[in-house]
Design a protein around this nucleic acid. Structure first.
Lengths: 200, 200
DNA sequence: TCCTGATGTTACTGATCGGTAACTAAGAAG
DNA sequence: CTTCTTAGTTACCGATCAGTAACATCAGGA
């Protein structure tokens, strides 16, 4: 069963890439779909068209592979914000909307935020992934806060936290009440929150 | 190491209780602290001052033990709402506040919502716990919605979803950004949301 | 051509997992 | 005292896990 899933995924991965990148790509797909603790290193190596030995030549343990996997996601997020800022310079509302659009789209078909999920799965307080998670979440909140300030919100910290928690809640609750639940109305709620903080 | 944790917890459990209840109590403590997948049935039995055989005489598998554990939590939630309704009859705002108080207090020292965490940890779509999780989350949202209606909110569904997602976000983000993050300002945010939906 | 380094392959370790069999201890009921 | 039920004990099963050793392959560079 796991072999089937792994080989199905293998087709999605570019075999011309060096093994380290293939392994990270496989980890991304498998961790996102099944969770971190549910996926063994062997499945990852196999899905990457590689093997356990090569995996351990590039990552000293599963834990640091997990941390690296999350670091890649955090980097992608950061890149996304930069791209959005470049696409809508000086337009904080448009930047926020672009972010909300992406998140709302993701809520429907994904299994929530990989960072938040990892924080739930990895209860060990000294896991190397925890620092990555905390940094990314802080960075995300700061990004939103900055946009809320640029927006001229009356209480930018409060609005930023409201938006941040709204999104965090939408992504986690998609897994418990389904993507058709409250998460599907996030955009309208966010609009209302921003409106309440900036109107008149 | 696990033995130490288990025996420390053993002291908290009333050994006069029948084994089934002791096992559920131990499961509650261990699952909440370390997560479901991180805790083996043997640790649970041991922490309950019992053993694996007795555990399997009362629960046909770990999965149904998990489901039962979550069902207990859902029942406690339901009981809480009833108690709150009895304490503040005809006062929806007071009932909401009582709920918010309890949740906010819990955000500080807990590892988030056990139901939501379970939904993250148990990626199998047919896990017996999933139906329990969905039902409880639906019930919670309906409860909030009912109170928002009684409150005379202009858009009760929207306000209910905002509050629901706010709480879900606060509980999950406490594990990634710490309890001092946005979660600590939930009460103020909720006040603002309710105000925006009921003022003038 | 030879050498070197990165890969792939196979097989293994030791630990832990969920789950079970067989037996014993204890208490309540008749 | 006997009987029946429940609980505890020990030992085990097969599977899977993270991680490693030893060896084969194959590229590219000198």
């Amino acid at each position: 069963m796991k072999k089937n899933l792994a080989s199905l995924i293998t087709g999605v991965i570019d075999m011309q890439l060096p093994p380290r990148q293939r392994i990270l790509a496989a980890a991304r797909l498998l961790f996102a779909e099944h969770g971190i603790r549910a996926v063994g290193v062997e499945s990852i190596a196999e899905a990457a068209g590689s093997n356990k030995m090569t995996l351990y030549r590039h990552f000293e343990s599963k834990d640091v592979l997990v941390a690296e996997y999350l670091r890649e996601i955090a980097a992608a997020e950061e890149a996304f914000w930069k791209q959005v800022a470049a696409a809508h310079p000086g337009e904080p509302r448009a930047q926020l909307d672009a972010w909300l659009d992406v998140v709302v789209t993701g809520v429907g078909n994904s299994r929530g935020c990989p960072l938040s999920n990892a924080a739930v799965e990895l209860s060990e307080k000294d896991h190397p992934a925890r620092v990555v998670i905390e940094e990314q979440k802080q960075a995300c909140r700061n990004q939103i806060l900055e946009l809320c300030r640029a927006l001229g919100a009356r209480h930018p910290e409060l609005l930023a936290d409201e938006l941040f928690l709204l999104i965090e809640g939408a992504r986690v609750s998609a897994q418990s009440v389904g993507p058709l639940g409250p998460g599907s109305r996030v955009k309208r709620m966010a609009d209302a929150l921003i409106q309440a903080h900036t109107a008149g």
